[in-house]
Every structure is written in C-alpha cells, then in structure tokens.
Design a protein around this nucleic acid. Structure first.
Lengths: 204, 204
DNA sequence: CAAAAAATTGATCGTCGTTCAATATTATTG
DNA sequence: CAATAATATTGAACGACGATCAATTTTTTG
C-alpha cells in the first residue's frame, strides 16, 4: 500500500469515526457535513472525495453499528451453548434490547436512515448476518426443519423482537420498562417455538 | 362560529389536506412548507399562523392516518365477530398489512417522523386506541386475564406484527411477498395465544 | 528537480424551515 | 356608515443545510 493509499484509508476511517461519534451522541438528525469536517479536521468538500454523498457515509456508519450488534449477539450465543434453544434465543433477544438501550442513537439510525437509491448488497448482507445465527438455532431446535423455512421463521422472530424493542423504548408511545419488554419478547419467542413443534406434530 | 373562525378552520383543513396528499404521494421526506403553500393556495408564512411548526403539522397528518387505520381495523374486526379470536386477530393483522401496503408512504410517516419536543398526549392516545381493540379480543379469548396484563400482551402483539410488516416490506432488506409476511404474522399470533393458554394451565 | 496526478480547500449555489415588517382583510365601535 | 382595532396574509429575508468546483497544496512519477 502506497503512502497515498494509507493516507486515504486513514482519512476515510477518521471521517467514519467522526460521523459514528456524532450519530452515537446526538443522533442521525444532528449529523451534518460541516460538523463531521470539524470533528475530523478537514474541509466539508474533502468528505466528498472519500464518499459519494452523506447517505453513503451513513451506510458505512450503520454497517459498523450492525457488525458491533452481530458480534454482541454471537458472543452471547456462544457463551450459552450449553442451554436450551429457547433460553439461548431469549438471551439473544435480551442482548438485542441491551444493545438498543446502550447504543440507542446508533441503533435507531439503522432503521431511521432512508435513501432513494437502492441499498448496496454488502449492506444488506450485514443485516442478513443477524438472521443466520437465529436460523442456526432453530435448526438445532428442530433438525427436520426446511432450510428456507428456518430462514423465514428466523426473520419473523427477529422482526418481532425488533418491533417489540422499537415500540417498547420509543418515546412516541410510553416507554416500557426493560422487564416488560423482556416479558413481551420471551412470550413471542416461546410462542413461536412451541408453534413450530405443534405444526410438526400435525404434519408428518 | 364566526366567519373568521370558519375561514380559519377551512384554511387549517386545507393545509392538512395538502400535507397529507404530499406525504401520501411522495413521502414524508419530500414534504416542505413551500410545496404545501402552493398546493393549498397560500404563502409559506401563512402556515405558521395555523401550526406552530412543520413537526406539529405532521402530527395532525399522522393523527388522521392513524384514525383511518384504526377505523379499518375496527371495521374488519366487527365484520368477523362470529369467528374465533385467533382468526379475528389474524384478520386484523392481514388488514394492518393491507393498509401499510396500500398507504405505504403515509403509514411509514407514522414511524419515520421524529420530533425533539415530547409528543402531545392526544396523539399518543391515537396510538393507544389500536391496542384497545386487541386487548378486548384477548380478554374475550381468555376472560380470566388481568386487564393490565392484557394491555401489555396486546401491545406486544401489535409491536410484533408491526415489526414483521415493517421489516417485511422494507426495501432495506429484501421485500417479502405478502403471503410470507402473513405466514410470519399468523405464526406469532397463534404462538402468543397458545402460550397464554399454557401459562394459564400452569398457574392456578 | 520538474511535470503530472491526486487531494484539499473554502467560497458559492440552490433549497430548506422559519421569522417578521408590511399589507390586506375582517370585526368592532361611535 | 365610517373609523379604528384586531386579525390574517404576504413574500422578502435569515441562517443552516447538502453539494459543487475552480484554485491551491501535496504527493507521486519520470
């Protein structure tokens, strides 16, 4: 890597760092080009030589947040490998809630951000990575499950937990206690898992 | 009502109509004061004599959308009064999906919109109205249920369905077919309902 | 070391939400 | 029915925004 490439990579990282810090501290709404420039020591125009536009930069910040989240969830899951699948899924859901609360602004930015252009595939994959862990657990719980079906149920499970956390901690509606949110999540998780068993008993 | 009051009410309604139309057609992001003024035939400044700011105006648009949604759900529910509670809840969920797809931009604006100031109570109540219908059905399905518990489960159910629809039709992740989304929703609804029964059998 | 290539700058553009003095409209009073 | 007060409307103006680009500085190449 040439000196120029290294310098560019450093600058690029500094811009993402600055944007990530601003989003984490003040939220996506407060993010603007001039403040990013001040925070990382460059002129506004410089940012546009490293990122197509502000939306693209946000994509990279969100990708970083998403990978942090995925790592937290996977670590939690590996730690509880001995336990039952329902317990492990509940632990993952609790960890999801914990991450959302602890990194509220950055987590919110994941879903708050919208761009007109189609989202690039590499960022979609960052999201799908989360489903994978869940699908693996579902297959562990019920080995006979069709792979595509497991993926769909995993996404449904993730979406449900996301909805519960999203509306649970939103100030739009009254914010629920973490305990109430966990109760909702566990009810959904155990409900879906028991249904998977019930449908299995009906079918073959 | 004086001529002036009537004129103000008409103007106020025209502004909300215009804003609602723009949000429905082009989305919340495309909404701006000048276009609203053009659409309802007044100057930008006039809008600020009828609404504190753009955020407040959006609140009124969202309130209208929310009431449309509540009416659709309540109508659907009344139509299926003969059926079982699980079926009625599934029908309501299907109607929720239908509304979100048919009124995508307006529906999205409900959750996309964020303001720094606290949301006024009257708008919170517009949201809580939706939980009420669900809680009533839960109590119908399981009369012994505690009222507060029913409200919490209702909110969890609503949140889950919302999450499934939200991430299901979002272009962020690959958009699922309506059929796949319904499958996810029905799994969650039946799962939660069966869990309610199970927990009941354990406890008393 | 000079020429080419690339990166950086900051003034500048058009657009946005919002404000406000000036103007026009409606209501009240003598 | 004036005349005056109260209110509503206007559109130019302000500061902040994302984005652009000619001018400048820095780095690489021959």
């Amino acid at each position: 890597m040439s000196i120029r490439e290294a310098s560019n990579a450093r600058r690029r990282m500094a811009i993402i760092d600055a944007a990530h810090a601003i989003i984490s501290q003040k939220g996506l709404q407060a993010l603007n080009i001039r403040d990013i420039g001040k925070a990382c020591g460059c002129a506004p125009g410089t940012i546009y030589t490293h990122f197509e536009d502000l939306d693209t930069l946000i994509l990279y910040v969100n990708s970083r947040t998403l990978n942090q989240l995925a790592q937290v969830l996977e670590t939690i899951d590996e730690a509880g490998q001995g336990g039952s699948v329902p317990d492990r899924l509940c632990n993952m859901a609790d960890a999801y809630l914990g991450f959302a609360v602890a990194n509220r602004s950055a987590w919110q930015a994941l879903f708050e951000h919208q761009m007109e252009r189609p989202i690039p595939q590499w960022h979609r994959d960052d999201h799908f990575r989360l489903f994978g862990s869940i699908a693996r657990l579902l297959l562990l719980h019920k080995p006979g499950l069709d792979a595509a079906q497991a993926q769909l149920v995993a996404r449904g499970l993730y979406s449900s937990v996301h909805g519960i956390v999203s509306l649970g901690i939103a100030p739009r509606l009254l914010r629920l206690s973490d305990q109430e949110i966990r109760q909702q999540m566990h009810l959904v998780i155990n409900g879906i898992l028991s249904r998977l068993v019930v449908e299995d008993q009906k079918d073959p």
